[in-house]
Amino acid sequence: MKKDELHDELNEHAPFLNELRQKGDGMRVPADYFDTLNDSVFRQLDAIGARRKPEAFAKTKTQRSWWQWMQYLWQPRFALASAVLLSLALTGWWYFSKPAEPEIAVAAISVEDAEAYLMDNLLELDQNQIAMILPADELLHISIDAEPAPADTKTNKHELQLSPEDIEDLLRDMTDEELEDLL
């Protein structure tokens, strides 16, 4: 079929070349050329140091196409490792990106609840804590004994000395338990 096509093609354009083609090209090869060619090629490979050694083979074998890489990475061990790494990354991202909890807790407590809590636990607070909570103009320092606080404390400038009447009023408002705690 293909020969007929070529025959027709040549006959149409150059019948002379079609006739010449039947005679062949006049080229020959030595009798044992093709029988010895394989060994000649391997001798050449040896001579230029290109004959493949097992380690060179293994190195070349790992040069995969992108599709072979995808198939290789799709093996269960790589898929499992990828899933674990992805989970860790997502957990880390969620942990570090969420808002700090204490701010939410403080924001959620009403002013009334905060006042009630402070009043209930007033005796548990030290002077510094009270100074941090109260506005400057309402700062009250109760000094039962007359000794002043050390001069370098921040609260010194806000200290007030209570009169005996003030102390009596305060004591009157206190419960028995509070008095016991105070003593």
């Binding site: 010449l20 005679k23 090209d25 006049g26 080229m27 020959r28 090869v29 030595p30």
Partner: peptide, 10 residues
């Protein structure tokens, strides 16, 4: 030596 074509082939 491995070509023995005639004048036309040459």
């Amino acid at each position: 030596e491995w070509f023995d074509g005639d004048a036309l082939q040459e």
